[in-house]
Computed example of a mutant assay.
Amino acid sequence: MSAPRIGLLLVNLGTPKGSDYWSVRRFLREFLTDRRVVDLPPLLWRPILEAFVLTFRPRRSARAYRSVWNIERDEGPLKTITRAQAEKLAPRIDGIVVDFAMRYAGPSIGDEIDALRAEGCERILLFPLYPQYAASTTASVVDEAARALARLREQPTLRIVPPFYDDAAYIDALADSTRAQLAALDFTPEVLIASFHGLPQAQIDRGDPYRRHCEATHDLLRAKLGMSAEHLRLAFQSRFGRTQWTGPYTANVLQELAQSGVKRVAVLTPGFVADCLETLEEIGVELRHSFLAAGGEKFARLDCLNDSEDGLRALETIARRELSGWV
């Protein structure tokens, strides 16, 4: 009998199975009916979701997805990059079976736990690829893993990688990547913006530590880069609906900078470990256009760590630490 193996499961948010209206609609339905994501009472939220959100938003989102779609693989960039992270991480940690899953639209967490068990893995390290904790992201992954384990008679032992918003390996990787990308630009930005995905302010008010984690990442990265708070600004993107979200909003900050005479900016996204619709299209297209239309002259979107050497080294360092005692 072969010795039990150890599995490492990388998990990110997910992407529609297609870039058409109905695929995006199914994805949004799964995403927006997760009570961790929208915690309004269902009797209040479901009519709004069905009558308005799932009627109009999929068409606009589908257009955005098509602009960044990986045509060769017929998938969203987040799935392509997360797969590459898993494939490139595997040979760096001997004796570990590495795979990836998506919280929404597949490959599902439950299916991938089953696949790792079929490979003989009796111990699994679950790695939510969210540097900053939020109940709508990290906790939702943990919930889904628990549901997958609940149906098993023989459960694998599960460990969960904690949020790594202040981890030295992650901050170092961000700093190295930022320096290299800034050096490759054909202009020198007057201001950099560290843009994180937003969260409804009501969720923060109820105790979610997400904003505090984002501020910590921003402060540590700023110190590592030797930049002032005015040179590396903190902002939040992807506001949805009319309620108050964490601010300042990235779109407003860019508008204000352009109107104040700032001509050259760069935007980095330390809340994402892989480029996706929000970084490639929202920042790289929408917000770029808005900044230039407001009077800006030069705009750069810096890549996430993705499957770069800097990014893989950070993921490996964190994973090895959490595998301590198993490996």
Rank of each mutant, 00 (worst) to 15 (best):
A229L: 11
R222I: 11
A223F: 07
S228I: 08
S140R: 08
I193A: 06
L232Y: 03
A146L: 15
S177D: 10
A223S: 14
L174S: 00
D208Q: 00
S136V: 05
V191L: 09
A169T: 00
Q201Y: 12
A175Y: 10
S177P: 04
S177L: 08
L149C: 12
E190F: 01
Y210Q: 07
S177K: 10
A216V: 14
V142W: 10
A145E: 10
E154N: 15
A146R: 15
P189V: 08
D176I: 07
E154T: 15
L225H: 05
P189S: 09
A146P: 07
Q203S: 07
A146F: 13
S140Y: 09
R159C: 02
P163S: 05
S136H: 03
L220C: 04
L192M: 06
I204W: 05
L220D: 03
H213E: 09
A223K: 15
G198K: 05
V142N: 04
A145M: 11
A173E: 06
S136W: 09
D167R: 12
R151F: 01
Q132L: 03
P200E: 08
R212L: 14
L199D: 08
K224G: 02
A148C: 06
D172G: 12
R147G: 05
Q201S: 11
G226C: 05
A173L: 01
A145G: 04
G226T: 03
A169I: 00
A202H: 14
R206F: 04
L182R: 06
S140I: 10
E154G: 10
V161P: 02
A150E: 14
Q181N: 10
A139Q: 11
H213G: 07
L185W: 02
Q155S: 13
T137M: 02
P189H: 01
T178N: 02
R153W: 15
C214I: 11
A135G: 13
D176H: 14
A134I: 11
V141Y: 05
P162L: 01
